[in-house]
Design a protein around this nucleic acid. Structure first.
Lengths: 237, 237
DNA sequence: GTATTTTTGTCACCTAGGTGACAAAAATAA
DNA sequence: TTATTTTTGTCACCTAGGTGACAAAAATAC
């Protein structure tokens, strides 16, 4: 069972890994990849650490998850053989967003992201990764938000959403970040997937807690307090 | 207010749009982009249609949403000036996953994806888009799943998760797709963000409905029925 | 200005799903 | 084999949040 798998163009094709790549490119790439046997339950990488490799799952199942403060964790996705993972390494300076661990015994092949890109694409890594960041970086952030949502209650979701809005649409103000956006409670409800009435209640509550102020029609978010309400404590971004 | 904005390198820099691009590249790109004024509530593109443009929001707010069968809709994200959107067009043959509409009056600049890529990156569009699909395509699918989850109940989430698992880890069987994966109800519960007990209940229910069969320890998913249970009816993928 | 529509605030009530507890059944270890 | 651990099944009960209804307040139209 733990017999080292043979990696050649044929096996890569069978895995449907890089269907667009030429045989030559795959051969070149294989030369630069290193194969690892990972035992069930072993962590491949932890969330928050710098991303320095891209991985290709050869056999087994890898689990991607997001640990939450209170010892819980959200299972984000299960990865099947032939899938590439650890792609935060394709964006400049980005740390791993999720934890990945072997869900069963696995064979995994890894490669440095710059080697991966230059082998398959004939442009400098920096160019590709900036482009990636500029185009899909935000989508990735969105995915991250959704996974976080999974383990939050309405109050936290609302706080999280307001923080994001403040970041995107806020202007600095003596009292905090003022939203340059006219949002009804209905809009907010859609955004967090809740009912309008409950949003109204929780908005009141956030105001009572002084995490949210109002200047006429404008909302002012106090990032520090709002973080607390979102259950982020002293995290970044 | 509806005065046509001036688009030059300076304004692009102010919007922090393509921070990595050179002035020359930006100039070239601007030459090929067309500016549109979009009135509040107007749809920029609908979900499901072929993706033939990338958009840059110049001013205003754009809303991304996912309409659900029962006249509801999930608000996926609000887009701020300087953000690029409509990036499904950067992946080959992909249709728009979400609907986008002007949340306020907007100025939007659009460009053909191939022009966008070749101007900024000096490689053929096809190469870049295959690479994108191979690396971030699945992450995009994941985002799509999470947004769908938002408007589903546990029964539907479970069905959706089982369908995805069948697709990733299933092998064809006379009776349906047999999962080559040993999952406990606990794992499933993590995957859909629910409690183990309720997952047990709903699994029973799916078996009763004959959408899910069991051959000893192995699960067999019947895609047609499972689709129905997931509330997908006759949709693709 | 007044009339009309949209948005907010606040009820009381209801339901999906969380929680704890425990027994039966299966899997695994010894 | 028997002992032990993991997984499943099924309770009864509880809570977060959905729903409908309606009035006050704001915004907008006329």
């Amino acid at each position: 069972m733990a017999r080292t798998p043979v990696l050649n163009v044929k096996t890569i094709r069978r895995l449907k890994a890089f269907p667009w790549a030429s045989d030559r490119q795959i051969e070149q790439l294989l030369d630069q990849m290193t194969l690892h046997h990972i035992e069930k339950r072993t962590i491949v990488f932890n969330e928050g650490v710098p991303s320095d490799s891209v991985y290709l799952l050869i056999s087994g199942v890898v689990k991607l998850s997001l640990p939450t403060p209170d010892e819980e964790h959200v299972l984000v996705s299960l990865i099947a053989p032939g899938e590439l993972f650890g792609i935060t390494s394709l964006m400049p300076g980005m740390c791993r967003a999720f934890r990945s661990e072997a869900f069963s015994d696995c064979w995994i092949s890894s490669v440095r992201p710059d080697v991966f890109v230059t082998t398959l694409l004939d442009i400098p890594f920096a160019e590709f990764s900036s482009m990636m960041e500029g185009t899909v970086g935000r989508w990735f952030a969105l995915l991250y938000r959704y996974t976080r949502f999974q383990s939050s209650n309405l109050h936290q979701k609302l706080a999280l959403a307001l923080l994001e809005l403040a970041q995107k649409f806020g202007v600095q103000d003596a009292r905090g970040m003022m939203l340059t956006l006219q949002l009804t409670h209905e809009d907010l409800a859609d955004l967090v997937g809740a009912s309008r009435q409950k949003v109204t209640e929780h908005m009141k509550e956030l105001e009572r807690q002084q995490f949210l102020l109002r200047d006429g029609r404008k909302l002012i978010v106090r990032p520090a307090g709002m973080r607390e309400a979102a259950g982020l404590a002293s995290e970044e971004k």
